[in-house]
Simulated scan of single mutants.
Amino acid sequence: MSRTTLIAIFAGVTALLLAGWGVALLWIETGVTMTMHGWIAYALGGIASLALSIGLFWLLFHSAREGHDDLDRPEELDG
Rank of each mutant, 00 (worst) to 15 (best):
I47C: 04
T30C: 03
V23S: 09
A11V: 12
L6M: 13
A15V: 02
V32W: 09
D70H: 09
W39P: 00
T35A: 01
Y42N: 09
F61C: 04
A41Q: 13
T5L: 13
W21D: 06
V13C: 05
G38N: 10
I7Y: 10
M36T: 09
T33V: 14
S2A: 03
L60E: 12
A11F: 10
S63N: 11
Y42E: 11
L59T: 07
E66Y: 05
S63C: 12
I47L: 15
L71I: 12
L50S: 15
L59E: 10
V13N: 03
I40D: 07
H37G: 00
G67T: 02
T4F: 05
T30G: 02
L52I: 14
D78T: 06
L6F: 07
R73T: 05
T30R: 15
A51L: 15
A15K: 02
V13A: 12
I9N: 04
W21K: 07
F10Y: 14
P74G: 02
G46A: 08
A51C: 06
S2E: 03
V23I: 15
A41R: 14
V23A: 14
L56V: 13
D72K: 09
L71W: 06
G20T: 02
G12S: 13
T33K: 09
E76Q: 10
D69R: 12
L71S: 05
I54T: 13
I47K: 01
M1T: 08
H62E: 14
G45M: 11
M36W: 07
A43N: 05
T14N: 03
T30N: 09
L71D: 07
S53G: 03
L60W: 13
L17G: 06
L77F: 07
H62A: 15
E66C: 04
F57Q: 12
D70N: 12
Y42T: 08
H62T: 13
T30I: 13
H62K: 14
M34E: 04
L44G: 00
G31F: 02
T35H: 00
E75V: 01
A15Y: 02
A8P: 00
T30V: 10
T35M: 00
P74L: 08
E29K: 12
W39I: 00
I7N: 08
R65V: 06
S2C: 02
G22M: 01
V13E: 05
A11D: 13
T33E: 14
